[in-house]
Nucleic acid binder design. Structure first.
Lengths: 218, 218
DNA sequence: GCGCACGGTTGACCTGCATCAATGTCGCAG
DNA sequence: CTGCGACATTGATGCAGGTCAACCGTGCGC
């Protein structure tokens, strides 16, 4: 999921209008926003925090398909049921729109539908990136690509510190990258030893961005 | 990519109208329909044949993100540039719409935009299935899931023979499933030995569908 | 027919990542 | 401060799937 541009498709009047439709809600860390196959009754816009989106196999194997940051929308597919489960990684605040009011708003603003479709297409493109990563990249490349994409996304929402926060657990990262926690941990250690990063409690300090970028795009 | 439902959103009059906008075109096996990052100048509807959609890494590693069958649309993202490359696996016939005439048609039929968004959301859901497959499933499960999804898609376009045609090469299957040709070949042999399939020149005969389904959804 | 290229299969071996297990670190409840 | 639980790191070992290589069948150009 991605920093949203729906809002930039709205003029000031429309912005106040859609704000009036929202219900601010808070979710504690680990709380569930919705589960896969639940009726898709709401659309969410994250205002603070982080959410993991994932699918489970019957035997418990998990694939995280994305992390949602503040600014991101959830539930925009507008299908009958949610395609993934979503839960908060840290304490998270959202604006919640009931599905019916959201689609009613959409019906009045047809130009938004165009925007929505562009947005979905962009999501698909990101999903395809992830397929390449999962299908064809090595552990080192996966971790580097993960760090680079997070850096870019945080930068876009105004966070440009040299320390990249990683509020999700190693298990979350592993389930996103199709690896195990041990491999993720070892890869971080290896990158640290090579001077590319410094692992700190809140995340990683990126001490050699070009090196990481090279790994990520190889 | 998926059997399309755009057409079912059109009434008879609209169908003749959109047909009039199309340019029937043929592509020989291995011919390129378009390449990743090319300006997205056209929308295609496959009427016959099969197309592979893929991304390449700079060093030549390839990830096929989907196979398009007759009935499927390509280029519906309506972004500036194609997100993937596409080429014909066998001789393929398509209806080609220039992007501008297609979007002009769309502008006149706003209900189609809604349909288009549903379609894109469904694509995203399939992409997420593929992420689970690539990130968390074993070789056996990948091959079984691949066969099952092809069976269902062929069934939907009216092909329900017990022999599932596999016009793509082993390399294509491997690049779709994140495996090597050798592993794909071995897995087919293993399934054959267990009685689930019979490998024939045109594809595979499915002799024990429940067994394959069990593997695919485990 | 012959040879050759191409795609597929199979076998032997290797390796990157998983698995299993021990140990470390931090935060928090008592 | 102490003990405990959750999470992370590190090491030892295993194995699924990759790599390398030989071989086979089919079709096609000559």
């Amino acid at each position: 999921m991605r920093q949203i541009s729906i809002c930039s498709a709205l003029d000031d009047h429309e912005l106040t209008e859609i704000d009036a439709l929202s219900h601010p809600t808070a979710f504690a860390a680990k709380a569930t926003l919705f589960s896969q196959d639940d009726p898709a009754s709401a659309v969410f816009n994250i205002t603070e925090g982080m959410v993991r989106l994932y699918r489970l196999l019957p035997d418990g194997r998990r694939q995280i398909v994305g992390f949602a940051l503040s600014g991101d929308f959830l539930g925009l597919a507008l299908l009958d049921r949610y395609g993934v489960s979503a839960d908060a990684i840290v304490d998270t605040k959202v604006c919640r729109f009931s599905r019916s009011t959201f689609t009613a708003f959409l019906d009045k603003k047809p130009h938004l539908l165009r925007r929505l479709h562009e947005f979905a297409s962009h999501e698909l493109s990101l999903a395809q990136d992830q397929m390449v990563l999962l299908g064809r990249r090595t552990a080192d490349e996966r971790v580097a690509a993960f760090l680079m994409s997070l850096v870019e996304r945080f930068a876009r929402i105004g966070h440009t510190s040299i320390t990249l926060p990683l509020p999700m657990s190693r298990q979350d990262i592993a389930d996103f990258l199709g690896l195990t926690i041990e491999t993720v941990s070892r890869t971080f250690s290896k990158l640290a030893k090579s001077g590319a990063i410094v692992v700190v409690p809140e995340g990683v300090r990126l001490t050699n961005l070009p090196q990481i970028k090279a790994l990520a795009t190889r």
